[in-house]
Design a protein around this nucleic acid. Structure first.
Length: 830
DNA sequence: TATGATATCCTTTTT
DNA sequence: GGATATCATA
């Protein structure tokens, strides 16, 4: 009799499940039932007698792992209990290999209780090193260094290999960071010394472990008889090699992914991994899941019409047999604020008309900062929403402080944690003292904790020193006592002791501000998570699992590797509109999807569009965004948008034009004469035309009073408060455009003149437009040589006109390329 | 040493 | 514009 697991699968899906015993490449188009196939395949394997513990399955997020586990149990309850499902090695690469490293870290020179450094720990350490090496911190920017280190690690280039390769040195010199290799080297030494690994180390060190310890490698090769990798298109080189090593003998690797949805190259993902899987595993069977069960035909076809513009693709043709569905609409707004208004209105109307819940709708954007305008609009209308942002909870200062205490107790060598809390709450241990401790630690070759621990036992004669030592001794005693608590108390009680004995609790209780209240709430939530963690573990133990009590280390690790994204939605409280970046929307689906900010230099982002690969990735990102929609997709863009505090013009995204017009409701930008043409016809400048249109609209909507949607009470254009200085606000109500109107060149080069002093208004009304909103008005010209008091001599290579100023890009002889604002840069012409 | 003022970066996306 | 880092001041 046929397994019920196979029932209801289409032929391609079924074949992919049945082939569980061979290497497989499953190319899964968007909405093609990928998760179902993956879970079915694992369930099928277990049904066929394969032991859960012999299966390694990596997912992109912890949440995906959790959900998959539950689904598998539901599929074959007679074969698999929840407790047994726990034995499947399922999770992100990071969490799985963190777990493996815990058991074998000592083999590669790390303690079993190693700390996991998050991005900000890494950055702080980099800053310390840059400072110690006396390097110019304006060139050695922590972010740049951090991402370079990350790249190296993801490519499995160790510091030794890095320093040995002269090509790297050459490149670093060109990037004006010749010391990078040393920094990288020191950084790794310091991490090791501190008993710490950063995110990338979890993969790099795993590789080192598997490379250097054949017995360990063999053990895991033996263990992981079957390896499944979800979202294979977004794996990096380090992950690729781990999979290769582990599968070396049996070769039973199953990867699932969609090359069209590879969107994480910025963190090292290699689309090549999926593109060349067949070359790497020649015996692999290939399955293509091309039928989309999620979206309407319109959406699937529209998405296809976009993605065909990419050159590097795997052959496949996604189709839907669903309804044709509604056409994709494009909303055009004047400003980002108005865009938010239009989108939120449309969303509200949609939800009301259909009677659907709010959580059927999502608003997606390219960058997190676009959420602000949307949030405002949603709030104003009282629409419930939920916003997904990275790891916001764990980014909170009070949480990081709490964690630092706990980390130091778990691993006293964690210098980053030490630095963070040695004087927090303030206990009179100043920067100088900390510096001295660091020096002492370096001299003795020990960690800062070990240094102070020894120090307080030593006799001190100097009375000034003595007071300092006394203060430090108190800190030592505090951490000591917390260590004791940890040994004696449960997880939650220990957390409570940390909060109270450290003085953090008292600090916030004393203060009666909203911030303090929220800090207390967050700390409470943190403690709750400890309790929850313990209870979950207790339940597993009751379920017959042979596990110890939940430990602080385990909790700590789960906390560092979990983001807000992984949290399960609070039951009953989830009828909310979702706001998130397109990246975070990967793998999700919504009935109604709004994609905002469809503009050049935003989506596609300027940076990415600089290279063909980057540009294609943006297109894939757009593909991901579109294919999230089940029923309808609405795209929007604004003609101007706040950027860096300036209002800038933008043009509709090229991706809008790539959508086959058949699937669009009207042409892009239809229904409105382009501003420039209408301006010319009316004898106005383009800026004036925009203003005129705005006035008309504003009067229609607001009846001439109240706040215009763009600008609001505080003029968007005014920006700084001084915009209206020296005179009363114009009576007309609408914020005014800049005095000096641009010629249409101002539209090609997105820019808006600064507003708005009253005398300029008169000229605006007069219709005789003053010329030159262009680069010439900056008083500089491309090619001109200038001198800067700090940067020395250089040449202007580009001028951009901004609302209020001109942005000059100057290449200095000694300092390289700098972007300066004409108004502020003290340049003299040479 | 704590606070407030001023500089500086930022805007890609996240395990 | 806004968040964060660094600096100046009491």
């Amino acid at each position: 009799m046929e397994s019920p697991i196979l029932q209801g699968l289409n032929p391609a899906q079924r074949a992919a499940v049945e082939a569980y015993d061979s290497a497989s490449l499953i190319i899964a188009g968007a909405g093609s039932g990928k998760t179902r196939v993956l879970t079915s395949r694992i369930a099928y394997m277990i049904q066929k007698g394969i032991k859960p513990k012999n299966i390694l399955a990596t997912t992109f997020t912890n949440k995906a792992a959790q959900e998959m586990r539950e689904r598998i149990v539901k599929m074959i309850p007679e074969h698999l209990t929840e407790g047994q499902a726990r034995h499947i090695w399922m999770g992100t690469f990071h969490s799985i290999f963190a777990r493996i490293l815990r058991t074998d870290a000592e083999r590669i020179g790390f303690p079993a209780n190693f700390t996991i450094y998050d991005a900000s720990d890494a950055k702080n350490l980099i800053k310390t090193i840059v400072k110690e090496l006396n390097l110019a911190d304006d060139k050695y920017k922590p972010n740049t260094i951090a991402s370079r280190i990350s790249q190296a690690k993801n490519a499995l280039v160790t510091p030794g290999a890095y320093l040995a390769n002269s090509a790297h040195a050459t490149e670093d010199r060109r990037a004006q960071i010749p010391e990078f290799g040393n920094i990288y080297n020191l950084y790794c030494q310091r991490c090791k010394h501190n008993g710490a690994m950063d995110f990338d180390d979890l993969l790099l060190q795993t590789n080192i472990l598997l490379r250097d310890c054949p017995d360990v490698l063999e053990r895991y090769q033996e263990q992981f008889k079957y390896i499944l990798v979800d979202e294979y298109q977004d794996t990096n080189y380090a992950q690729y090699i781990i999979v290769r090593r582990l599968s070396q003998h049996h070769g039973k690797v199953c990867v699932v992914g969609d090359d069209a949805q590879s969107i994480y190259s910025f963190r090292g993902a290699k689309i090549e991994n999926i593109l060349s899987f067949q070359r790497d595993y020649p015996e692999a069977k290939v399955f293509k899941l091309e039928q989309n069960y999620r979206s309407t035909r319109t959406i699937v076809e529209a998405a296809n019409s976009v993605i065909v513009h990419n050159s590097r693709r795997m052959e496949k043709r996604c189709f839907s047999e669903g309804d044709e569905g509604e056409k994709i609409r494009v909303l055009k707004a004047y400003t980002d604020r108005e865009e938010a208004e239009l989108v939120v209105q449309d969303l509200r109307d949609k939800v009301r008309a259909t009677g659907d819940a709010w959580n059927e709708a999502a608003i997606l954007y390219r960058t997190n900062n676009q959420s602000q305008a949307l949030e405002e609009s949603l709030r104003r209308r009282g629409i419930p929403y939920r916003i997904y942002k990275g790891a916001s909870f764990y980014d909170r200062k009070e949480i990081k402080d709490m964690l630092a205490y706990i980390r130091l107790v778990v691993n006293p060598r964690d210098d980053e944690a030490f630095r963070r809390i040695v004087n927090y709450p303030a206990r009179g241990i100043g920067d100088t003292t900390v510096l001295r401790i660091a020096q002492l630690a370096a001299e003795r070759g020990v960690s800062m904790w070990e240094a102070v621990d020894a120090l307080v036992a030593e006799p001190v004669s100097d009375p000034v020193q003595r007071t300092i030592v006394r203060k430090v001794a108190e800190f030592v005693a505090l951490i000591r006592s917390l260590s004791l608590e940890r040994a004696q108390k449960g997880l939650y009680d220990f957390g409570m002791e940390v909060a109270s004995r450290s003085g953090i609790l008292a600090l916030f209780r004393r203060e009666n501000s909203p911030e303090a209240t929220s800090a207390l709430d967050n700390i409470e939530e943190l403690l709750n998570s400890m309790q929850l963690f313990k209870e979950q573990r207790d339940a597993e133990i009751r379920g017959g699992e042979e596990l110890g009590e939940a430990t602080v280390e385990e909790w700590l690790q789960s906390v560092t590797l979990t983001t807000d994204m992984d949290k399960k939605e609070d039951a009953g409280d989830d009828d909310k509109v979702t706001l998130m970046t397109v990246h975070s929307a990967k793998g999700l689906e919504f009935k109604y999807v709004y994609i905002v900010g469809m503009e050049e230099n935003l989506f596609p982002s300027q940076r990415a569009a600089e290279s063909p690969e980057g540009f294609e990735e943006e297109r894939r990102l757009f593909y991901v965004a579109l294919t999230r929609a089940k029923c309808s997709a609405v795209l929007s863009y604004a003609e101007m948008r706040f950027k860096w505090g300036n209002m800038e013009f933008s043009r509709p995204s090229c991706f809008l034009r790539e959508i086959d017009p058949r699937y669009l409701d009207g042409a892009v930008g239809a229904g409105q004469t382009p501003v420039r043409e209408e301006a010319a016809a009316g004898g106005r400048t383009a800026l004036e035309e925009l203003r005129r249109r705005f006035d008309v609209r504003y009067q229609q909507r607001a009846g001439g009073s109240g706040n215009p949607s763009f600008g609001g009470a505080k003029s968007s254009f005014g920006g700084r408060g001084g915009a209206y200085s020296g005179g009363s606000r114009p009576e007309s109500g609408a914020p005014s455009f800049g005095g000096q109107g641009g010629t249409d060149s101002a539209f090609r080069r997105p820019a808006l003149q600064r507003p708005v002093v009253p005398e300029n208004l008169r000229r605006l009304g007069g219709g005789a437009a003053p010329a030159a909103g262009n680069a010439a008005a900056s008083g500089y010209a491309v090619g001109e040589r200038v001198e800067h008091p700090k940067f020395g001599c250089g040449e202007i290579v580009r001028i951009e006109t901004l609302a209020a100023d001109h942005k000059l890009v100057v290449v200095f002889e000694e300092y390289g390329e700098k972007t300066l604002l004409a108004k502020f840069a003290k340049l003299t012409k040479r």
